[in-house]
């Protein structure tokens, strides 16, 4: 159990780390693009496209980690004005709703990835990357968010006891 949670911890923070590096990568690639176009008259062509795709990766690779850090913004008006028991129940309820949401998204986006993988549909831009590759972070990221929500539900429960 302890090993499992350590492993989960490790995966989630590694995925977030990749997110961070991708942001850095986008920055350097766009700067390179400007230089190549303005100075050498040889634009890279792929920076806009790659940045767009990486944004899908950044969002879904980092989302579970942000969830762990409680970084997803919520309205705190009600939560701040009720007793801690009720607050725990609400936290638990919103984790259940969140878990359900990301589980469904994980399933349906996974289905879409599977379909697109079989169809081999590319995205027609400069690079013609297969669409399933870009969609891939959706089921994976959502799945880890699901686990994270489940952990939240059970840890709130054990605190209650």
């Amino acid at each position: 159990m302890v090993n499992m949670s350590r492993l989960l911890n490790c995966i989630i923070s590694k995925m977030a780390m990749v997110s961070g590096f991708l942001i850095l990568f986008i920055m350097f690639s766009i700067c390179t693009e400007v230089a190549m176009r303005q100075i050498l008259n040889k634009p890279l062509m792929w920076t806009v496209e790659i940045s767009e795709y990486l944004q899908v990766y950044i969002t879904f690779l980092g989302a579970a980690w942000v969830l762990r850090k409680d970084g997803h913004v919520r309205l705190d008006v009600l939560l701040n004005n009720i007793g801690s028991d009720k607050r725990k129940i609400l936290y638990c309820l919103s984790s259940v709703i969140g878990a359900l949401t990301v589980l469904l998204i994980s399933f349906f986006s996974g289905w879409t990835v599977y379909e697109q993988f079989n169809l081999k549909t590319p995205v027609i831009k400069a690079l013609e990357i297969q669409k399933w590759i870009i969609l891939m972070p959706l089921p994976i990221g959502s799945f880890f968010m699901f686990i994270e929500f489940v952990v939240k539900i059970f840890s709130a429960d054990s605190e209650n006891k």
Binding site: I23, I26, M27, I30, V48, S51, E52, Y53, Q55, V56, I58, T59, L104, I105, F108, S109, W111, T112, E115, I134, L135, L138
Partner: peptide, 23 residues
């Protein structure tokens, strides 16, 4: 319709207009 939703998430995010935000 729900499957279409995952395509809408993908296309909302793979949009250059939001690139400046992390930068």
């Amino acid at each position: 319709g729900v499957k279409q939703l995952s395509l809408s998430i993908y296309s909302a995010l793979s949009n250059f207009t939001i690139t400046p935000i992390p930068l």
